[in-house]
Design a protein around this nucleic acid. Sequence first.
DNA 1: TTGAAAGCGATACCAA
DNA 2: TTGGTATCGCTTTCAA
Lengths: 372, 372
Amino acid sequence: MGKQPPEASNGRLTLLTLARDLGVSRATVSNAYNRPDQLSPALRARILARADELGFSGPDPMARGLRRGRVGAVGVLVDEGLSHAFSDPTTVLFLDGLARELQLDGLGLLLHAGRGDGVMLRSIRDAAVDAWVVLSLPDGHPAVSAVRSRGRPVVVLDQPFLPGVPLVGIDDAAGGEAAVRHLLGLGHRRLAVLTMPLQAGGREGRADVRRQQEATYQVMTRRLAGAAAAAAEAGVSWDQVTVVECMANEPDAAARAVAGLLAGPGAPTGVFACSDQLALGVLRAARGAGIRVPEELSVVGFDDSPPARVAEPPLTTVAQPLRGRGRTVGALVRALIRGEEVSSPAKSPVRLVLRSSTGPLGGRDRSSRARA
Amino acid sequence: MGKQPPEASNGRLTLLTLARDLGVSRATVSNAYNRPDQLSPALRARILARADELGFSGPDPMARGLRRGRVGAVGVLVDEGLSHAFSDPTTVLFLDGLARELQLDGLGLLLHAGRGDGVMLRSIRDAAVDAWVVLSLPDGHPAVSAVRSRGRPVVVLDQPFLPGVPLVGIDDAAGGEAAVRHLLGLGHRRLAVLTMPLQAGGREGRADVRRQQEATYQVMTRRLAGAAAAAAEAGVSWDQVTVVECMANEPDAAARAVAGLLAGPGAPTGVFACSDQLALGVLRAARGAGIRVPEELSVVGFDDSPPARVAEPPLTTVAQPLRGRGRTVGALVRALIRGEEVSSPAKSPVRLVLRSSTGPLGGRDRSSRARA
DNA sequence: TTGAAAGCGATACCAA
DNA sequence: TTGGTATCGCTTTCAA
């Protein structure tokens, strides 16, 4: 007796408390929860029943986690605040796919949002997780190195590229190229490209080539490169293409950013927005300015998110698998946690979906466009 | 020596490894991380620097969690899938407020979504969290009891009511009442009320009084009760009010649910939708049917979510603090984790926000409404 | 099928 | 200011 731990000295219920109560060893109780095959069904039932009576809800997750080396949670790093992230249907669908896949192994999602300030870094350092998912963060985001130093598996969505870390991405360049080629094919020559923030803390307005090259969001770099390639192919100089950066990946930001552009002289007749969110903003701005789409203005989006389908008019856009990428990332994470080696899967192909937000140049009456 | 643990036998880096390397005790290293005031700045700097060199990213969260009895995470229970939950701006803003508040104590959010199936219950049982937030779940949702039995603090948003568990809610009845009274005040007598699902797994279509009473989403019960009270006050029998239940709290579901209603004879001239999401669906359906709002149809929403402001026309709606409720819940959770006693705060007041989706009966030409 | 004992890695007393 | 030591609650060989 003397050697035995004090009887629930704590008041808290533990495996041991329960074992004592039932007159069995803790190992047996543990097995009742973790290895049903290691004891008789009858005994197991008795244990579980008694546990329920006593209000014992199973082994303490922390202790079990320490012992087993796994907690059953995956940390997810998202840019900016939660409301920012979740206001983007693209992210939401990704997370949904990810959550579903991870649930297969009973893994939960631990969200970490922020710009990489001290608080965020601390909470990354202290988070009890088995692996990490980096959700499209810019180069140099402090959270990324914080996560890497934790020494657990990491999977990156889209960006940043990290040597030795599996990355799930798409062919962004091909997407940008397809979008712009489509506009050019319709006869448009006065083009504008709308980008999400090119660096942490976006800047609104024209982005010159230098700003484009300094982008820390590689996804943007690649889509722009694709767009430029398509332009070059058609003999359109990239300098003639107006590249406008938005403050955020939100319709409002895009609407604000293009308002002046659409109204001015020499306004573009074709716009490639690097996300559907931005494209929706362009549609809104056009509507506000009385510009008809697609008769007077063609708009191409990117993502093929649900709102693209119900937009007015429905958006021509570059489709990428949204929920599917979540599942892909989830599968990689699961494999890594199991200790398997994995490498980045091939980039998902993209596909231009034609809807009614694009049309031939001068498809109808363009005179109403004359203003000022 | 003999008694000392093996030298990093594991290969893994621990406090002890580092302590040995530096020739100090583990307590000192621990203090370097957790109690800077317990050692000289110089020593602390030396320890941290060496840790960085060695790639030691701080104390193991699980071990620390076990020892301290806290992990630094809060479990959040949401209905249905993540994509469902996040497609509702109301939820997103709530989570944003919650996350911000919890971040003050370095607490992360561990998401648990689902209908309460075995997988969800298991992951609740195994989740390492310090407290729980229940996000508007119906009575009898299995996850709720799973969470309670975990014996950690719980805070409920809106529903279900649990004795002894703090709940943050609003005056739903007053909201419903204000909405319907407003419609009645404008002269509307042919009314319809649109509800979110009344039970887990909604049903689309007319909800008779019995169905209304059997609702397991108490929030709906209360809003309907408020609406009924306003009707009674104006001498309108509740039987004359068409109550339609939607399959989900989404515009599409609402649009589907009311399509027939708006077209038919004796169509309502005033609709109270129990959420902005639903109200947006009504606007869409009306537009699709060529019914002008507010000239031919008045629509009141609930929540005052961001889309309500930019809707066409902007929605008259019952405003409730969205992000603010997240902060409130977060503050309660923090207090509970600190071991303080808390009780439910007073219900937030609601306030009817008048915009342009409502107007007097027959405000303009109603003849165009004649059909069939 | 069951039980005893050895850690998992860290924290927080209490001495020194 | 620093170091020893008990303990947090559980899982998992290994014997019985």
